[in-house]
Design a protein around this nucleic acid. Structure first.
Lengths: 148, 148
DNA sequence: GTTATTTCGGTATTAAAATACCACAATATT
DNA sequence: AATATTGTGGTATTTTAATACCGAAATAAC
């Protein structure tokens, strides 16, 4: 069993964390509460949130009552921006193996670049508000956990 | 700079090696000659060819004048069969992180499974004869190397 | 039947990624 | 001011995959 679509654990966690914060856009979420909401390790999530903060996607405040908030309106945050904050710019793959056999254009470049373009369009075309609205259950973290 | 399309080096080497053999379907190719033709390490290629042999895609003969040949007609070997001989069955990804936030269907499952389906269709729809015919330069390894 | 060539398959080494840990800085509360 | 809470960022550990290595088996050539 193998998969063709690849996304690092970190990128996936980032997208899910952003979605969780988008449900309550004005509230501060601690790393711990997000980690519990996603059932991921706090250590891993901390790194992810750090990078989102540096990319300007979330704002962070330290100390008691501190935490993370989305820096912008959820409708203004595309999934692509979250993804690229973690993974770097998503560019089409040319070829994994630029070798003589292919004679110029690699036999796989069509597939690889098409897949990357499709993924980019998907991620660029959806923002956090879209996704949050599409979820079966409404507002609170409690509701979400019940539904999970 | 990141990529969404993922294929292991081994799978890529397998596809390129199969293509190289498809150019001369009746001849024996040693692991060394294929490795040189692809400019990959012989050690890595050896493992790949072994798995292709076990999957019945190539036949192997040991000893002097030994080597590897395609077991079937190039037109009867899909890229998917070569890919899956290395990576295992290509199945759509559901979600990397089955977490409560998504409430049932993961926010990424549409993207991930679409990408996998697209890749599967692409690979299943092309065989070695198709690809070899599409190459700019004709028959021999020498021609291929000149073109590379 | 001896030697050279080539694949086979297990093991070991290396590289890379994920994950966890810890001391530090900042800030709200008292 | 002291203390508790929370993010920061560097480092270390663990895990996993990729890659390389090496002895063994098979077979053709002489």
């Amino acid at each position: 069993m193998s998969h063709f679509a690849k996304m690092s654990e970190a990128a996936s966690v980032a997208l899910h964390a952003a979605l969780l914060m988008a449900k309550k856009p004005r509230e501060l979420h601690t790393a711990r509460s997000i980690a519990e909401g996603l059932t991921v390790s706090e250590a891993t999530l901390a790194k992810v949130l750090q990078r989102l903060a540096r990319a300007g996607i979330v704002d962070s405040t330290r100390g008691p009552k501190g935490g993370f908030v989305l820096a912008k309106n959820p409708a203004d945050v595309t999934l692509l921006s979250v993804y690229e904050a973690i993974e770097g710019t998503l560019t089409p793959t040319r070829c994994l193996l630029s070798r003589p056999v292919c004679g110029g254009e690699c036999l796989l470049s069509a597939l690889l670049s098409d897949v990357d373009v499709q993924a980019r369009n998907f991620l660029a075309g959806k923002n956090l508000a879209d996704v949050a609205a599409a979820l079966p259950v409404g507002g609170s973290i409690e509701d979400i956990e019940k539904a999970g």
